[in-house]
């Protein structure tokens, strides 16, 4: 009798819990619907026909889906070179940032350096610099060294954002690599640099992939450096040519939204595959070790 009553009570409790969970889920779904509506709006606008775009009544579900606004871009020479520039700038910035950032993260994670904390502080502080501070001095410097309108100029500036980020994110990974792993390689006669490349980096693979993706995105998303240092449209990436394309498309918002969708693709795909790591990476710049 007693146990029966207790069972009843537990059942009721768990039913109550379930109902509470269900309500929480509904609230969360409501939030996500509101927050993601703009993204939905961009996606459906990008597949609407010109006819539907210019119709008097807005449609919340496209009547007929057409990929023409997407295809228009790939037939446009201006779009193609902007896309190429985006890719080249992002890769250059990424390569530069990784080669300097990963090594420094290792140096600060594994060794006890003179002025260790001051060096760390330099990287923390430089991460907070506003880009406005770099624009004029670097513009005048690149003007003197004839680096304006090259891919290197924006990439060099972008790297100043990515390097501190890489160091702050990766340092804890290197700190957690067991010393024995590295030392075993040394005893075999490997140099410090070789054991770093061959043994240590593979051991922190997930961390390296995370910073690789995020520093690529830094370059891909950059607007201000590319538009300042590269005035020629043919050297500008997709972000910096947005105004040019808006003029070109006029009120054809389907084309403009397709442009935005294409620009968002690297972010969305890497997010799908690396969500967990990216979430860790995004906040690591903010959280102290």
């Amino acid at each position: 009798m007693q146990t029966n009553q207790l069972n009843e009570k537990l059942k009721r409790e768990s039913r109550k819990e379930k109902r509470k969970d269900f309500i929480l889920m509904l609230i969360a779904l409501g939030i996500v619907v509101i927050m993601l509506f703009p993204v939905y709006w961009m996606a459906i606008t990008s597949v609407k026909s010109d006819h539907e775009i210019f119709a008097k009544v807005l449609t919340f579900i496209p009547k007929d889906i057409t990929f023409e606004p997407w295809l228009v871009q790939f037939r446009d020479r201006n779009f193609l070179y902007s896309l190429r520039n985006s890719i080249v700038i992002a890769f250059t910035a990424m390569t530069l940032s990784l080669s300097l950032g990963i090594t420094a993260a290792y140096g600060l994670g594994k060794y006890k350096l003179p002025f260790h904390n001051s060096i760390l502080l330099v990287f923390l502080v430089t991460q907070m610099m506003p880009s406005s501070l770099l624009l004029t001095p670097l513009y005048l410097f690149f003007a003197r060294t004839s680096l304006l309108n090259t891919f290197l100029a924006p990439a060099m500036a972008i790297a100043t954002n990515s390097i501190p980020f890489i160091i702050i994110t990766l340092r804890p990974y290197f700190m957690s690599v067991p010393k024995s792993l590295d030392e075993a390689a040394r005893i075999d006669g490997s140099s410090a640099f070789r054991s770093f490349i061959q043994i240590v980096i593979p051991a922190v693979k997930t961390g390296v992939i995370t910073v690789m993706v995020i520093s690529f995105l830094h370059g891909w998303n950059d607007l201000v450096y590319s538009m300042t240092f590269n005035v020629e449209a043919t050297m500008r990436p997709l972000t910096a040519n947005i105004h040019k394309f808006m003029d070109q498309y006029g009120m054809k918002w389907n084309n403009i939204m397709a442009y935005g969708m294409i620009l968002a693709i690297p972010v969305l795909t890497s997010f799908v595959f690396l969500q967990k790591h990216i979430i860790g990476g995004v906040t690591s710049g903010a959280v102290k070790e």
Binding site: L100, T103, A104, K112, I119, L134, A157, A159, I163
Partner: peptide
């Protein structure tokens, strides 16, 4: 350790 760290430090100090 310094050899690993200095290039990035110099780069940041030089630009920023």
């Amino acid at each position: 350790g310094l050899l690993f760290t200095l290039p990035a430090l110099i780069y940041m100090l030089a630009l920023i």
